[in-house]
Design a binder for these strands. Structure first.
Length: 573
DNA sequence: GCCGTTTTCGGCCCGACTGTTTTCAGTCG
């Protein structure tokens, strides 16, 4: 799948063109194309093969030729040529907050700065302040910007940001001075990784709120403390902004600060066509300047003739067109979930007994769980021997007799071994209620080998779900090479489900792949992969990927009552 | 570079803040 590679190349070309001072609209075209490539659910190679590049938005004649060239030759001459025009270190300088293309160009031309190290040195030696239009303040800002990058400009997993944001929002909500409060930005859109946390509020006494915020226990450094906007760094090094807004503009501001940028651009373009203008202060008639709305977020969409678009969908990936046609999906809600289909107990590397898991699941309002411990080859995780698994099945059957209105499915997370065979015999797998199969070894195998292993697992009658189908660990391990298009096809054909694994570092299938699976007619099974009782809460995280993947209740296996769920499994057909 | 029942040429999202200026360019979200 070359989508990501091409996106990367277009981003970089855009950056180089920016430094060169090329036509800003041309640059925007590259960024837009890159963004489209990145979130395209279809394999670009197939689109090229079928000669359908002209269907892609933002891809015209010239970019289509470039994509074609890269897909067929693995190279892009225009990119190679462009790269020679600008030293590679210069692009890294752009990542320093406060340094844009113009400044980067000036720094390179006057001081030959082409790396962050050289930039730091020049700032410390006060060489930058000798340039026109730059003074000491700029030097300070550059040094601070470099610190910010070093300290963790890297994005954090949603699973880390969400609890932290909840903590801050919870603390501020307690103040009687705070009326409305909402996180905005990528956190509200529930992106799998978050850059910084943005919180919007309305208040009768902004100054008081700001005082409380900048003195919260999680604060390690106050970056700015103003009347209406304050910024802090938490002890974990996470940047948090709080803005106090006029209630009159709150909806428009919430819409604006939620983004995404691409969604907002598309929305504003649409507004212009209708003789309207949108800003963070409201939606206006362009000619008369009359304000039409702004207090409520929903009104912005309504006035544009759109149905309300959930924050998770705001990526300019077809949601505006769907809203126009009143064809937005009714996104799955956490309350639609009736059970968890991937939990580890203390029979392998989990910490809780099956009884305790049942108790915790019931408290969440669930009707069933599938206990899926590790299989025998995964020795490090206490994988179950054949004998132990048989015993566990017996235990679960016994337990079910005692339970009323709740069902424990005897399951397993069976390893797909390096040669593509499974870790237990079919005879043993047959005795289970529910089998998820997963790869835990041989990550470095070729795309063909890994795909073949998963395909073979799908073709096994007793495998119900492929767990964490890409094997990635956010910020730690790249996904293994796998032809997901093929896997989706085979899953559809064999009646196998694909998992959204809720483990915050996994979270795969991710949003894009989930949407792809849905489009390919494959249903999703959601499992928390919980190893402790607390981790059952990860269900919330899994739902973010599902919702961003446009999934509805009907697309997800564990929204069904248990008897209907079991009937959907190929083993029972 | 893309795009089009207002256009195949001339547009392309909007506003605030900052640092440097004395009217504005650059950067950001």
């Amino acid at each position: 799948m070359k989508n990501r590679e091409i996106a990367q190349i277009f981003y970089e070309m855009g950056e180089i063109l920016e430094i060169k001072g090329d036509n800003p609209f041309k640059i925007r075209a590259y960024y837009k194309a890159a963004q489209n490539m990145e979130s395209l659910t279809e394999d670009i190679e197939r689109i090229v093969q079928e000669d359908r590049l002209n269907e892609l938005p933002g891809i015209g004649v010239k970019l289509a030729l470039k994509i074609k060239e890269y897909v067929t030759t693995g190279k892009l001459r225009a990119y190679e040529k462009l790269k020679k025009k600008v030293p590679s270190g210069l692009i890294k300088i752009l990542s320093v907050p406060g340094v844009g293309p113009k400044t980067a160009k000036l720094l390179y031309e006057e001081l030959k700065i082409d790396s962050i190290e050289k930039l730091k040195k020049a700032a410390k030696e006060h060489k930058i302040s000798q340039l026109p239009h730059l003074k000491e303040k700029t030097e300070e800002n550059i040094l601070r910007g470099i610190e910010i990058i070093k300290r963790g400009m890297e994005r954090m997993p949603l699973g880390v940001a969400l609890p932290l944001a909840n903590e801050i929002v919870g603390a501020l909500k307690k103040l009687p001075e705070v009326k409305e409060i909402n996180p905005a930005g990528s956190l509200r859109r529930k992106k799998e990784t978050i850059g910084d946390i943005d919180i919007l509020i309305t208040s009768t006494r902004p100054a008081k709120v700001m005082d409380v915020f900048t003195n919260l226990p999680c604060v390690s450094q106050v970056i700015a403390h103003g009347e209406t906007k304050s910024s802090i760094l938490t002890k974990e090094g996470i940047h948090v902004d709080v803005r106090v807004l006029n209630p009159r503009n709150y909806g428009a501001a919430l819409q604006y600060f939620t983004g995404s940028k691409e969604h907002n651009i598309a929305l504003r373009t649409l507004a212009l066509k209708k003789g309207l203008k949108i800003s963070e202060y409201g939606i206006f008639n362009k000619r008369s300047g009359k304000r039409l709305a702004g207090e409520k977020e929903e009104d912005i969409y309504k006035i544009l003739g759109l149905s309300y678009i959930e924050p998770e969908l705001r990526e300019n990936q077809g949601e505006i067109e769907a809203a126009k046609a009143n064809r937005l999906p009714k996104l799955i809600e956490e309350s639609d979930i009736r059970g968890d289909l991937h939990i580890h107990s203390n029979w392998s590397d989990g910490s809780a007994s099956i009884e305790k898991i049942v108790e915790a699941a019931r408290k969440r309002g669930w009707e069933y769980v599938a206990i899926c411990d590790h299989s025998k080859s995964l020795k490090i995780a206490g994988g179950l021997s054949d004998k132990e698994l048989k015993e566990q099945i017996k235990e679960i059957r016994k337990l079910n007799k005692r339970l009323k209105g709740f069902r424990v499915l005897a399951g397993i997370e069976v390893d797909i071994l390096k040669d593509g065979t499974l870790d237990y015999s079919d005879e043993l797998l047959r005795q289970l209620d529910f089998v998820v199969a997963a790869i835990h070894s041989g990550f470095k195998q070729s795309r063909e080998q890994i795909t073949k292993r998963i395909v073979k697992a799908c073709e096994n009658r007793w495998v119900d779900v492929i767990a964490h189908p890409t094997g990635r660990l956010l910020g730690e391990r790249a996904p293994y090479e796998v032809d997901l298009d093929k896997v989706i096809k085979v899953a559809k054909h064999t009646g196998t489900f694909l998992e959204i694994n809720a483990y915050p570092k996994r979270l795969d299938l991710n949003d894009i792949h989930s949407r792809k699976a849905k489009e390919g007619g494959v249903k999703i099974s959601i499992g928390t992969d919980a190893h402790t009782l607390d981790q059952l809460d990860y269900m919330t995280i899994a739902l973010t990927a599902a919702r961003r993947g446009w999934l509805e209740k009907k697309d997800v296996l564990n929204t069904l009552p248990v008897d209907r769920l079991l009937k959907k499994l190929k083993r029972n057909k």
